[in-house]
């Protein structure tokens, strides 16, 4: 073994994905502990997260008390759909919430540090701090999901549970893929927060209702051009036995979780490609 090979060995260990993820986990924990120091802010932000995600649910509740069904979906069905989308959303924002700060990270030159450290820059972007309002998202998501899963007529066989877990992860990636691709544009455009806010809202608003009510054109677009249907509408249709009303075949409906994975892999390539266009702000 040459000396060169000996010196390279620890570096290779450094770059292994498992090591990277462990490192990212440690950084995330440190960021979380850091934020816990601001107790009052933690309480306010958590409460805000609950109010933000709960207000959409309040709308469905108030309206369905009056009308009983929305395009054949009962309040219980809609609650399940809404909470499944929220669960996917929470699964995405807990690790990746700091992508919403990317404009600032780039503008203030913090990204220069990330490039010289031996860890994937994306992992550093998402772990350098922690935004506490996502805890509110998680609390609301779990509370509503437990409530809705009890109310709605969902069968929880092993197959269904496996499908549900994969669908939540796939849904998280289906939302994340678009946000990540948009955040990648910040390397060139410098400011994309309003666009990401719009995307976030489009996912929230279109993703929380049976997509069918918006018409065939929108259903098609938000299935094949932007993967909103795969976040919660298609999986909850399968689990609630509404699949016959879907605009896609049962094979695609059952394969829904895979779509999110494919989108995310493609989106990560966009990120790596746009990364090359990074210009330091001059620190």
């Amino acid at each position: 073994m040459t000396t060169e090979a000996l010196e390279r060995k620890p570096l290779r260990r450094l770059r292994s994905p498992i090591w990277s993820l462990r490192m990212a986990w440690e950084l995330e924990k440190a960021a979380f502990r850091g934020q816990l120091e601001y107790r009052l802010n933690f309480v306010i932000m958590t409460f805000l997260g609950i109010a933000y995600q709960g207000s959409g649910f309040a709308f469905i509740w108030v309206v369905l008390r009056q009308f009983h069904t929305l395009d054949g979906w009962t309040f219980h069905d809609l609650a399940f759909l809404y909470s499944l989308r929220l669960l996917s959303h929470a699964t995405w924002v807990v690790p990746f919430n700091l992508l919403s700060d990317i404009d600032m990270t780039l503008r203030e030159g913090m990204f220069d540090q990330f490039l010289v450290r031996p860890l994937n820059p994306l992992l550093q972007v998402i772990t350098h701090r922690f935004r506490m309002n996502v805890i509110g998202d998680v609390i609301t998501a779990f509370a509503l999901f437990v409530l809705a899963a009890n109310m709605a007529d969902v069968s929880f066989t092993v197959v269904h549970v496996v499908y549900l877990v994969l669908a939540v992860i796939g849904g998280a990636l289906a939302e994340g893929a678009i946000i990540l691709a948009c955040a990648s544009l910040s390397f060139r455009l410098l400011e994309t927060w309003a666009l990401r806010f719009l995307i976030d809202n489009v996912y929230l608003m279109f993703g929380s209702y049976p997509l069918r009510i918006f018409g065939a054109g929108i259903s098609w677009s938000f299935t094949w051009l932007v993967p909103i249907a795969f976040v919660a509408y298609i999986p909850s249709s399968v689990l609630l036995k509404h699949a016959s009303g879907l605009h896609v075949s049962p094979i695609i409906a059952w394969g829904a979780p895979a779509v999110g994975f494919i989108w995310f892999i493609a989106s990560y390539q966009v990120w790596r490609w746009q990364l090359k266009h990074y210009q330091s702000s001059g620190h």
Partner: peptide, 14 residues
């Protein structure tokens, strides 16, 4: 505008 559109579609379905 998206919110107005959503409200229109949801209320029309209702």
């Amino acid at each position: 505008v998206v919110q107005i559109f959503i409200l229109k579609k949801v209320w029309s379905a209702l």
